[in-house]
Nucleic acid binder design. Structure first.
Lengths: 333, 333
DNA sequence: GCTGGCACTCGTTACTCTTGAGTGCCAGGA
DNA sequence: TCCTGGCACTCAAGAGTAACGAGTGCCAGC
């Protein structure tokens, strides 16, 4: 473990680098770090910090830059996570006070809010539909030989799937299937889609089986909808165009993003720094995540993606506040 | 109008610049342009082309670069729009052969296809729901004092809206409202949402009125869903980071994108070059657009966004093929 | 009207020199 | 033992200079 003085020096370097994006030298730390020793002493300590892997020197005559390990220490020993300034608190409050409309639109807007708050890219993973119960099931003929199965879930989201039906199927048969499906599925969840009990009518049973089958493959793969806000801000976070390209390409792959957030949450972290999350393309990015709860149940995840030298206290505070407010808002329905 | 030789020189400059992104000199044109005159003569012609506004010179001792007007001439006189190479045709065919699932997912995938084909960003505007008829309407209680109104449209898309309902409303009343709404709305379109005729029951009527009102504001504003694919490719199209940022920020504003495409289509164009579309942030971008038809009706729009020096023949060919195939695919249902 | 020739322009590249921020180390002092 | 001021050293960044060469405009001659 680091003694108090070294920790203070490390913190000063991290803060300086986050602010200026320039390597931080001993004299700057001596002047502004609040540590009552000379720059020579700080230099000696910095050598030690470098040997222990908290700092690196881009080249001999430059200052120090934090490593992932350095950022990790900084985040882990950060006091109280910081608070949002009043302007931002205000912004959050008024957002959730006026938020309305379909849940998808609200989650999308939330990702933009979070991006605005932090000036980084933001990600919102929609509540998992796994625990939501089915409130309504309906089969609607679309013409031709397709029909649409629409399931309304208790969290206000909708799952739908196209079903192939025999040509020239009659309305009354669709209706029969709808009532039969309703009877057996409503009240259950998407995860335990039971096969429909037989109804006595062969054609209706076939239809129901096809419908259930159509609804099933959604589960697991693409059920996690994700909203990415402010991806364009990554363009200013890096000055190398190809870094920007790499990061944006990754952000476009929704399943990667979902997997990334889930992975971080599963490991019990709220921050993943640089290479910690294992995605090479995001090696000089950090993400700050938080789950949100709806009616006491863990429902989804939100996160902020920025460069490793991101402003952690502010990002953590923003993510915490937004996740809490979002959960509360969604619990109200 | 340009005489044939000048036109050939202009075309050679445009093609050269598109390929190399470097100013094109007279000697290159003389060597590779297929024009049997010396570079000196070409220089003389270039002076004229510059005076007429087709070319500019970045600085005295540099080659020429096309202006928007130059690109415009190139595009307008381009022969036959070019064909996709077989590999790309193959890609399109296999995409539409295997495309399946919900319409939203398919449109999203289509935008990625188009982006892959052209190596630029691609945009797909979903079919407008205005002409689609309502196939089914259902009100579902969500608990608390909210209910969800779900309307299934004939094109397979779904419109939904939350409706405030009195506390402790009974299932039978929701059911009554559903049947009443079905009776009056099914078969119509979203644009001519008639007020429900009175049912004789005050509470049911109130509920129906609220439901219709909730569905209405969707129209006009956010009804045009849009899918942007491959936005990250814009990061390699420009080398200035802030150009990238500007373009990406614009692409994130969906209503701007929709308006842009619509505007171009309305003006009867299939290509908008540089400043032609009037969006300052996209001043050095061009877009290539095409409408697509579902069952003979104009339904939506697709487009490709790239730098002004984009590869027009290929982009036009890709957009044409994809719009046609997409329309056909959607017509099949 | 086209062409070869030629002087001229000016961005690009390479090289050198200087500057200055920052370092490591050391000897002296608390 | 630990801290500090001093000092020589390193090296990226910036400025200045020179050579290069791609490309131009212009002109005299065919």
């Amino acid at each position: 473990m680091l003694d108090e003085r070294r920790a203070a020096i490390l913190r000063a370097v991290v803060e300086g680098y986050i602010e200026t994006a320039q390597p931080v030298g001993s004299s700057l730390v001596a002047r502004t770090g609040g540590i009552p020793v000379s720059s020579a002493t700080i230099r000696n300590e910095m050598v030690a910090l470098e040997q222990e892997g908290y700092l690196v020197q881009p080249h001999t005559s430059a200052g120090r830059v934090p490593t992932d390990k350095g950022y990790r220490f900084f985040v882990d020993t950060m006091a109280g996570h910081g608070k949002l300034d009043t302007a931002r608190r205000q912004q959050v409050s008024s957002f959730f006070a006026t938020a309305h409309g379909a849940i998808e639109d609200m989650l999308h807007a939330t990702s933009q809010l979070l991006s605005n708050l932090t000036d980084y890219a933001a990600v919102v993973v929609a509540p998992q539909s796994e625990q939501a119960t089915i409130r309504s099931v309906q089969l609607v003929a679309l013409g031709g030989n397709t029909a649409l199965l629409v399931a309304v879930l208790s969290n206000g989201s909708i799952e739908k799937a196209t079903v192939d039906v025999p040509d020239e199927i009659g309305d009354e048969r669709i209706g029969a299937a709808t009532t039969h499906l309703s009877r057996s599925l409503v009240g259950g969840t998407l995860t335990d889609l039971a096969a429909c009990p037989t109804s006595g009518d062969q054609q209706t049973d076939d239809l129901c089986a096809a419908a259930v089958a159509a609804l099933r493959p959604n589960r697991g793969t693409e059920i996690d909808h994700v909203y990415v806000g402010g991806a364009s801000r990554m363009a200013t976070a890096f000055d190398a165009v190809d870094s920007v390209r790499r990061v944006l390409t990754t952000l476009e792959q929704q399943y990667v993003v979902v997997g990334l957030l889930r992975d971080v949450i599963d490991r019990g972290l709220s921050v993943a720094i640089g290479a910690e999350h294992g995605l090479e393309a995001l090696a000089d990015c950090s993400i700050v995540v938080a789950p949100y709860e709806v009616e006491g149940e863990l429902a989804g995840t939100i996160g902020v993606l920025g460069p490793t030298r991101m402003h952690y206290p502010q990002a953590l505070a923003a993510v915490a506040v937004v996740s809490q407010r979002l959960g509360r808002r969604l619990s109200e329905g």
